[in-house]
Write a protein that binds this DNA or RNA. Structure first.
Lengths: 244, 244
DNA sequence: TGATCCAGCTCGTAC
DNA sequence: GTACGAGGTGGATCA
């Protein structure tokens, strides 16, 4: 299937291309003037304006306006996307569990574009919490002298804790890791895990930085903090690439 | 400015259109085969594949692949987007605070489309937590007989609590509201607010449903739960529109 | 399928 | 500007 693009396409073309895009591995983009209605987990309406509508073969659906990273309206993968009217062109995206509906009513379709998507690549991401976990597990001395890490994702009654280990006195230690500035909710999470343990355990929140309130909360509950930067293997390359 | 679209555009056209889109209130969409590199808060790489690149006049930048609601790579509003090379066409999006860089290297540009975005509409969303807050505040009896709500967003040492009131015995009550199923983190949040109060206060978590673990935690800490459905004004319209 | 938690979360708001 | 919390969060993972 070739990619195609058309300006001011007939409604029938839009309908046909949407069908094609579903049968094959293609996205359909529509640059339109439209109203949008959503109902489901909440309900929303959006008055007429110019937007970009993008449908994907997995049933994902997004409506982008002229600002912001996030779409104004969307449907997660698995939705059923259809042209339900051609005068005016009206697109619906529905799913169940939960029942949700988006209806896009287009007073004009400026461009339509069908885009076969040949893409086998997977995103390779570094610097996640999992990477931080590996780093701290392999380099327990960044926590403190004599710390030994013994287990990742150790199961407890309250769920798996990031890292479990023992300090130089043989006392058990529980680490909760965060890849960014820690806040009150992160202290709560650490506290929750400790609450569910029968025994006395040191709790340490590990993050690159801490908000004032999180530090107060840690202090109040007899918990500790350690500043550890997330490790991103790409850092070096970054500086050579950017120079900005 | 007219909208325009071109297949297999020259690099110079892409460069010119990107400039135009920034000067005026237009988005630029590029259907390309590209590699993507990101470095900043983390680092990521994405091997060659077909994708849709969308730039917005506020500096937002997204790269959509053929699946999923979320972009594979993105930059929030405020980024500087530029063509840094024309052979091959290479797009960069950078920002500072934090320093971040995306570089999109296009081995092919299938379509380019410049899309003036005339859009003054604001999204009207109903069924949010704020709506639930109003509803419970105005209808305190949904919590229990004799409950009086006296304050929304009442300031405390731990931050503002959703609703403050008094029960039929004149005892103070603190409500934490959630518009969806409550989990462990929501119990923690309620508990955090109570911890910072000097006096004894009843704590009630209000949500449409509760996970088992959240109920255990509430029980363990002497807290309460109330099932309240979020109110969406659009519900009625929804059923008449969808019938699915 | 549901529950839990991470995310380069994004986004708005208040301090 | 940072901090905090909501979000129609989305998405992955594991029971």
């Amino acid at each position: 299937m070739e990619s195609r693009v058309e300006t001011n396409p007939d409604p029938e073309v839009v309908e046909e291309w949407l069908l094609e895009s579903k049968q094959r591995k293609a996205c359909l983009s529509l640059y339109v003037r439209c109203e949008v209605m959503y109902d489901g987990r909440a309900s929303a309406s959006l008055a007429a304006g110019d937007r970009l509508v993008l449908t994907k073969p997995d049933g994902s659906f997004v409506v982008h306006a002229d600002s912001g990273c996030d779409p104004q309206n969307w449907m997660p993968p698995g939705a059923s996307i259809n042209i339900v009217d051609t005068d005016p062109v009206t697109i619906s995206a529905t799913r169940s569990d939960p029942n949700e509906l988006i209806r896009v009513t287009c007073e004009e379709v400026y461009h339509a574009s069908i885009m076969p998507m040949d893409d086998d690549a997977e995103l390779n991401l570094e610097g996640t919490e999992a990477d931080l976990q590996d780093y701290v597990f392999e380099n327990p001395e960044v926590i403190e002298d004599g710390f030994r890490s013994t287990e990742k994702e150790k199961e407890t009654a309250a769920g798996p804790v990031d890292i479990w280990g023992y300090d130089s006195n043989g006392e058990p230690v529980l680490l909760e890791l965060k890849r960014r500035t820690a806040g009150p909710d992160d202290v709560d999470q650490l506290r929750r895990y400790l609450d569910h343990l029968e025994i006395e355990v040191r709790g340490i929140l590990v993050a690159p930085s801490f908000s004032d309130r999180s530090l107060e909360m840690l202090d109040k509950h007899g918990l500790e903090s350690r500043e550890v930067e997330p490790q991103a293997a790409g850092r070096d390359e970054y500086h050579s690439l950017s120079d900005f």
